[in-house]
Amino acid sequence: MGYKLTPAGFGALLDELATNYQIFGPVRYAGKGRLAGTDLTTYGPVRSVSDLVWDARTTFAPKEVFFPVKESLLYFSGQEITEPSLEMKETLVFLRACDLNAVSRLDKIFLANGPEPDSYYARRRQHIHFVLMECQEGFPGCFCVSMGTNMATGHQAALRLENDHYLLQALAEPWIALGERYGQPARVEPVWVEKNPLTVRVPERVDIALFQHELWREYACRCIACGRCTLSCPTCSCFSVQDVIYRDNPERGERRRVWASCQIDGFTDMAGGHQVRADRGDRIRFKVLHKIYDFRRRFGINMCVGCGRCEEVCPEYISFARCVNTLNQLMEVQGRDA
């Protein structure tokens, strides 16, 4: 069902939704950018229509709404252990097609990777509902078309900002009822980005011989191991575990999981001091191949969704897209030589 809504109509719709849902979406925080005088666009609570940011990609991905940066797994007090209960309101997340595709990647890792689903993820995830924000065109550095993530499924509704009004495609309740109440019926067909200025060709296969390629040596010099590429990535799911002992009572404390990054020092440290990937070039190789090769070998789809964040946030101008295209060329050359 399609509806046309005025900003006021859509605002009233959101107000009604807010009584039963918590709503997250791309929001701009004035003056909160890294650099003086810049804003931070990222996921946060949406309180009104005007909060939703359409003209910029978010620095961080929507995953933090249901995969918190920090999550208490259990509390301990002497010999007792308690698992924290979760009371969570139904939650709506406004997001783009690439990011919605990224959710399916996170679902694979947390729900379908081991013998049991990750209960902490699962219990949040069941309360999450998605509203697609349609892209008229991508942002610089996007390559969703190359990754096949320009289209998406699994959302309750799709929303398009067109000139001075919103077009709503209601695919499920409560959106049909809300569309009827706050909008005018209209013909709304989904619109997908069909072309990005940037094309990325993912190699079908990556030869293990490429592990020693000089390409990674270049990245070893350029990368500063800050971890921004992974922390902003909508599909990265790695976490570390912290046991926090309360300062005022060492008998009590909690075990948390906290986002971690394969790019940051310490990620592969093992007892005895061995580091699996001390070299930064090796870390980039590990990340890139996971995004476009290893994950696919396990789950049948590429992990990367082409959102372009990793390139945009890299202070050293390292381009994931260029790296993948270089790998593809190297494999093509190898194919010809064979």
């Binding site: 925080y29 003056g31 909160k32 950018g33 890294r34 650099l35 003086a36 931070l40 990222t42 620095t59 961080f60 940066v69 800050c226 971890g227 921004r228 922390l231 986002w259 990054s261």
Partner: peptide, 18 residues
């Protein structure tokens, strides 16, 4: 100096008043 804000990859440090 604001370097912690520049360094932070998570925007855990952000700009407060100037």
């Amino acid at each position: 100096c604001g370097e912690c804000i520049l360094q932070c990859p998570m925007a855990a440090w952000t700009r407060g008043p100037r």
